[in-house]
Amino acid sequence: MTSPTSLHPSAPGTGVTNMLTFDIEEWFHANYDDVVPDRSKGSGFRSHMDKLLELCSETGSKATFFVLGYIGEHYPDVVRAIAREGHDVASHGYAHELAYKQTIDVFKADVKKSVDILEELTGTKIIGYRAPSWSIVESNLHYLEALEELGMKYDASIFPVKTFLYGIPTAPTEIHKPRVNGRTLGLYEVPMSVMKLGGRNIGYSGGFYFRFFPRFVVKQAIRSANRQGNSSIVYLHPREIDEKEHKLDLPMKESFIHYYNVRGTYAKLENVLRSFRFTSISDHLKRHYGLET
């Protein structure tokens, strides 16, 4: 049997462990105002989750699963399986609503609803959150205070890029405790990984970016970050490993972003997980930042 060390070689001279995350939602969970998906079609969600959990087990990888409260209600056995396998269960909100389109009270209630569902299923305290579609931006950065009030120990919602849907391009790219309204919060911000391309921050290790860039580019970017002593964060959605999953009827640009190269995603993920060490966000914070839970 291959040992964990030989299975997950780090970049030369580093020993850095990276972070693996999944946003757990159905194929129809998206944020396009004019798109009304036919939810009666069903989905391959259960098989996707079985496949992801099996891959994590085979590669010795631990992950943080950001789970919608909706998923907890409809697939409680899946959430229990995630926890049983020793992975972190964290909140992705309840129904995949954009945080910056919610009032702070609605946002807080939405997160709490999801947390209550997930804690009941797992029997453990939920300490992490990621906003749907990276929807913590400059205009609602103060929503992090609501997460702090709910007892969250970390947030992973900020993408230090700028797109038509999300991003804070000037945000710190390293893990930090953010300052909001003149004070430093008690939770950690774990921003998504970026690389410099043409003088601008761009993602490389999750979602569209993971699917768009060739495998060697993704792996080289992870190695480069590791050589500098930095961890990379990989993130994907269950739908991204199955080209046969139902698809939303989207305009050309949005469809390209949502579905480009889904066919090759699982093989690329498997290769990356076998090439580097991966752990959950909470484990990383405990080991390197002294997080207490």
Rank of each mutant, 00 (worst) to 15 (best):
P132W: 01
Y129M: 01
A156P: 02
F216L: 12
L236K: 10
G229F: 10
V180R: 08
E243C: 08
T293V: 14
S10C: 09
F22W: 12
G151P: 04
Y235K: 04
P238H: 08
H246M: 02
H87S: 02
S40R: 13
E25L: 11
Q228C: 06
F278S: 00
M195W: 02
I202A: 12
V262Q: 13
R183A: 00
H74Y: 09
A267H: 08
N140W: 08
A90W: 08
K62P: 00
Y94F: 14
L285M: 11
G198Y: 12
E148D: 11
I222S: 06
S157W: 03
S135Y: 06
A63E: 01
V218S: 12
G86I: 13
M19L: 10
D110M: 03
G72H: 01
S282L: 01
P37M: 05
G229A: 00
G93S: 07
Y235C: 03
M1A: 15
Y260F: 15
G229L: 04
S280G: 11
A83K: 10
L250F: 01
G128A: 04
V111T: 00
M192I: 05
M252Y: 07
E73Y: 05
L150Y: 03
Y260W: 06
K153M: 11
E240Q: 06
T14P: 10
V79C: 04
L185W: 05
F212I: 04
H176P: 06
L291K: 01
G128S: 07
R287A: 15
G13P: 09
G206A: 04
G69L: 03
